[in-house]
């Protein structure tokens, strides 16, 4: 059985307490809201995309340590990435959490969330920021739900 300290690692606790890129952008090119009705996690995420490249990301999150830490680490990693690279990151992240083996290739700092795969009830907490990101990149109206 995986130790809880592998889930709640120091880095995760730090990001959940002091989320990077917290707040809102003044002139985002896309905004989306994400909601996990199961636990009440709520995230509003702004992106600024120019010429197919993510220039800035900011978010406002009210949620558990897993979802806030994911949003924080994710937002740090996204700046300067192309849309293609951002979508690829989401695919890899999902694969790490739900794929047959915990493959973390190319996930860089997000690898710290690999322990979440041992807690199936919590996978949605980790993927919520990414689902919200995808909606923000498409600038979809409405709220993204994880279930």
């Amino acid at each position: 059985m995986i130790d809880l300290r592998d889930l709640y690692q120091e880095v995760i606790l730090d990001h959940s307490r002091n989320p990077r890129n917290a707040g809102r952008l003044t002139e985002p090119s896309g905004t989306a809201k994400g909601h996990n009705p199961l636990c009440g996690d709520l995230i509003t995420l702004d992106v600024l995309v120019e010429d197919g490249v993510i220039r800035d990301v900011s978010f406002d999150a009210r949620g558990c340590a897993i979802s806030v830490a994911t949003a924080s680490i994710m937002s740090d990693m996204l700046k300067g990435k192309t849309l293609e690279e951002a979508h690829d990151l989401f695919r890899r992240f999902q694969k790490m959490l739900t794929g047959p083996d915990a493959e973390a290739e190319g996930l860089d700092k997000l690898e710290v969330l690999a322990g979440v795969r041992e807690f199936p009830m919590r996978v949605k907490c980790a993927t919520l920021p990414f689902h919200t990101l995808r909606a923000a990149l498409d600038n979809e109206p409405g709220t993204v739900q994880t279930e």
């Binding site: 809880l4 889930l7 636990c39 009440g40 996690d41 949620g63 558990c64 807690f119 919590r122 907490c125």
Partner: peptide, 8 residues
């Protein structure tokens, strides 16, 4: 601490 983390 968020309730969900407490529950886990």
């Amino acid at each position: 601490v968020h309730p969900h983390d407490v529950g886990t």
